[in-house]
Amino acid sequence: MADLQSRDADALTARPDALGAKGFAILRGAASGATIARVASDLSPHFEATPFCQGGFYGTRTKRFGRLLSRSDAVAELVLQREVLALAERVLSPWCDTIQLNLGQAIEIHPGALPQFPHRDQDMWRGVTGEVEYLVNVIWPLTPFTRANGATLIWPGTHGAAALESEMVGEPVVAECEPGDAIVFLGSTLHGAGGNVTTAARRAIIVSYCLGWLKPYENQWLAYPPEVARRFPPELAALVGYRQHRPNLGNFEGQCPSILLGDAVPDHIAAIDALRPDQEAMLADYVDAQLAGGETARAGS
């Protein structure tokens, strides 16, 4: 397996073009040490209390849990990190009106964990492959990522159209990095957690963003019901589902679900169009034609 001194090391930089060229990039120092320390401290008791996963994919020597925005206020700083969010929006915006949070999940890989099955996260949806990017993943290490303790393995250049290939090509890069760094990779990029041959667990959280019209991995409205989401800033509330995706997707009684975050929700509300510009233009032409036809009919009567 390649490491950071390999010929693929240029992909492990903060340059945004690395994401398109290699399918991944590492943003060095993307979060402050103070933020990571707060997240790590807040989540530590949850790691301790969470049982091991069941099943070969999740890993029987691995712990996982979600609802991170409810467990640590500092997680919001990572979800809304400007550079990461801009990358996600740039990648996904060609295929959607707005993006959404796909999941926030904490992962702890314990000693003895085997390497994870190499996979592409986009395969959770049965959509067209090789043409559309469905999500962008971000791994935020809470402990150092090393070859020995299960750092994420990433196969460079396996994204996009290359996802149509049935066999793995080349050796994976070991994404060794430090807390505060962000490992960003496309949903079409082949990857998997490494095995942990040390005596200590490695911890991280995953934040991922997907197309706004997809069903996300984590049911955001159950994870963050209105009584929880009301304390989120508007941008964060929108990311977890309190925003319509045109045309009219994810509405509540025909309106943007952000209405649920107000002080009072009327028992009866009017449905309001939320259409794409092309649909609004077609609708305007249709209405104009109908009105013109009515005027002609009245003139002839």
Rank of each mutant, 00 (worst) to 15 (best):
H159R: 10
H159E: 12
F24C: 15
V128E: 10
T60H: 06
L85T: 04
M124P: 00
H119W: 10
I99P: 12
S301K: 15
W213H: 15
R298I: 00
A200L: 07
H46R: 10
P233G: 08
L190F: 10
V91N: 05
D278Y: 09
G194F: 08
C210L: 02
A182T: 05
G20H: 07
G29D: 05
T62D: 05
V91D: 02
T143M: 04
G262V: 02
Q105V: 10
T199N: 12
G150L: 07
F117A: 09
V75G: 07
D3I: 03
G160Q: 07
G104C: 14
R28D: 08
A299N: 06
G294E: 14
F24R: 02
P277Q: 08
H46D: 13
W125D: 11
D97Q: 13
M282K: 15
N219S: 09
F47K: 03
P257H: 05
G23K: 05
E171S: 14
T198S: 14
W125E: 10
Q5D: 14
R298D: 06
L153F: 04
A18P: 05
N248K: 03
A271M: 05
V79E: 08
D8Y: 12
A292V: 00
I139R: 02
L19F: 10
A292Q: 06
A182K: 03
T35Q: 08
G294Y: 11
E83M: 00
M168L: 15
Y58T: 05
G33H: 10
S6Q: 07
P225K: 09
L239S: 03
E77C: 01
